[in-house]
């Protein structure tokens, strides 16, 4: 299995958290949703550490960060990896409220996770303010092609219906992971980053009361971007 990220095509590059460019750093809130077992935690771990290991079930929610350098800006992804279990559903809105990016993940080898993904999309749409969230449908476990229950076309069709991003990934092999993260980074920056007040700036030691509260409040109307 491929433990290393494939080289990223194009100008932008992914760097580890330790590098800091002279450019400004903006905070991006990203939430990962989907049934349990589809690979959300594995995906988050790939994003932040480019590792794959068998994780134990997520308890509640896990918070991880990953810095992505684009040509003229640095984005600090604050990733909320949720547990897909039903008992946590009542608290999940905390995490997708005000998110700049939302990934809805399903397992291409399990139809019920695809059905569940549609429920998540509906729920997100209830909260959705057009232009404030980049949404992405992710069909994971692409390596399990021979056990596939959801065709690429079917996934693609669902995404196009709702004008979402769509990609199939394999967290196990690392396929399409960095492309996904970079794609989201570009899209978030284009759609939301330019807006006044769209993305807040990240400081080394942010003042909690001034900065952190806004992560949980839904987007103010000034952040809207046309579709």
């Amino acid at each position: 299995m491929g433990e290393n990220l494939p080289r990223v095509p194009g100008g932008a590059q992914l760097h580890s958290d330790t590098l800091h460019g002279p450019v400004r750093t903006l905070r991006v809130k990203m939430v990962i949703l989907g049934s349990s077992g589809v690979g959300k935690s594995s995906l988050a771990l790939r994003f932040v550490r480019d590792e794959f290991k068998n994780p134990s079930p997520t308890v509640g929610c896990a918070y991880l960060t990953r810095v992505v350098h684009l040509s003229d800006v640095t984005l600090r992804f604050e990733i909320w990896d949720t547990a897909g279990q039903e008992k946590y559903h009542s608290v999940t809105p905390l995490y997708y409220r005000g998110a700049h990016a939302a990934l809805v993940v399903y397992d291409i080898s399990k139809r019920e996770t695809f059905v569940r993904a549609q429920v998540w999309l509906k729920e997100l749409e209830k909260q959705y303010i057009p232009g404030s969230t980049v949404m992405c449908l992710v069909g994971n476990k692409g390596d399990l092609d021979q056990e596939r229950q959801i065709s690429v076309q079917e996934g693609q069709a669902l995404a196009s219906d709702r004008s979402l991003f769509f990609t199939e990934t394999s967290v196990l092999s690392g396929d399409q992971i960095s492309e996904l993260l970079l794609g989201i980074a570009h899209r978030v920056y284009e759609c939301i980053g330019g807006q006044q007040g769209g993305l807040s700036e990240w400081k080394e030691t942010p003042l909690i009361d001034l900065h952190h509260r806004d992560t949980f409040t839904p987007f103010a109307s000034c952040c809207k971007v046309g579709p």
Binding site: V59, C61, A62, L64
Partner: peptide
């Protein structure tokens, strides 16, 4: 028991209702 049963808190910070 919660902490000892899951390695999920090793990756990042956990936040859970209890």
């Amino acid at each position: 028991n919660l902490v000892g049963s899951s390695s999920s808190f090793r990756e990042g910070e956990g936040w859970t209702p209890i």
